[in-house]
Amino acid sequence: MRLIGLTAVLTFLLDQATKYLVVIHLNLRELLVLDVAPPFLNLRMVWNRGVNFGIGAGDGDLTRWGLTIMAITISGAILWWARKEAFSPLGQLSAGLLVGGALGNAVDRVIYGAVADFLNMSCCGLYNPFSFNVADITIFMGAFGLVLFTGNNKST
């Protein structure tokens, strides 16, 4: 469980630090667009009030607080599951990535009322209209890792 906690804390801190750096320090909240290494890396400010790709985005408080409570509940359920099943180290790392990312996005909803998404990447003539953040990446990696490294798929 120590690895889960350490991974979750480091993931949360990395997510919040990048959001502070980009949204506040670089002032992307007002600039809205900052090309870093086009088209491979651009910063595009989006306030996501829904889930992935803005799905279910309602501006109401019900959506905001419902998604915040859901992130906290899922994080708690994963921690309970990890303790019950005694995850392998890779399972623990995956759980920590997912929990840290989920809590990072939950904090955004509490502070800003929406999740701060800003990373935008395109490549090879394909344009990507969506923005995301570090928490989104770690949530995906953690969920994928839980599928691969828990249950019958345990691996060290």
Rank of each mutant, 00 (worst) to 15 (best):
R2K: 14
L3T: 14
L3Y: 05
L3R: 02
L3H: 05
G5R: 01
T7I: 05
T7F: 02
A8F: 03
V9N: 08
T11R: 06
L14K: 07
L14V: 13
Q16R: 14
Q16S: 05
A17P: 04
A17E: 12
K19T: 01
K19V: 03
Y20R: 11
L21P: 00
V22M: 11
V23C: 10
V23G: 03
L26W: 15
R29H: 14
L32M: 08
D35L: 08
D35P: 07
V36A: 06
A37V: 15
A37H: 11
P38K: 10
P39Y: 09
F40A: 07
L41K: 06
L41W: 11
N42F: 10
N42V: 12
L43Q: 05
R44T: 15
R44N: 15
V46P: 04
V46T: 07
W47E: 10
N48G: 11
G50T: 04
N52Q: 11
N52A: 15
G54M: 02
G54A: 01
G58I: 07
G60V: 00
T63R: 01
R64F: 07
R64K: 06
R64M: 11
R64Q: 02
G66V: 04
L67Y: 06
M70H: 07
I72N: 00
T73R: 08
T73E: 07
I74N: 01
I74W: 03
S75K: 08
S75Q: 10
A77L: 15
A77R: 08
A77Y: 12
I78D: 00
W80V: 14
R83T: 11
E85T: 05
E85S: 03
E85K: 13
A86N: 12
A86S: 13
F87K: 01
P89C: 05
P89W: 02
Q92E: 06
Q92K: 09
L93A: 13
S94G: 08
S94Q: 00
A95H: 00
A95M: 01
G96N: 04
G96I: 00
L97F: 02
V99F: 02
V99C: 05
G100K: 02
A102H: 03
A102P: 03
L103V: 03
G104D: 07
N105C: 06
A106C: 02
A106F: 07
A106N: 03
D108R: 03
D108F: 05
R109D: 02
V110K: 10
I111T: 13
I111A: 13
Y112D: 12
A114E: 12
V115L: 08
A116Y: 09
A116H: 11
D117C: 09
F118W: 15
F118C: 06
L119S: 10
N120P: 05
N120K: 15
M121S: 15
S122W: 13
G125F: 11
G125C: 13
L126D: 10
S131I: 07
S131A: 15
S131K: 05
V134D: 01
V134M: 12
A135N: 13
A135W: 09
I137T: 15
T138K: 04
I139E: 01
I139C: 02
I139N: 01
F140A: 14
M141D: 09
A143Q: 11
A143N: 07
F144G: 12
G145E: 06
F149E: 04
T150Y: 08
T150F: 06
G151S: 12
G151D: 13
N153I: 09
K154Y: 11
K154D: 14
K154N: 14
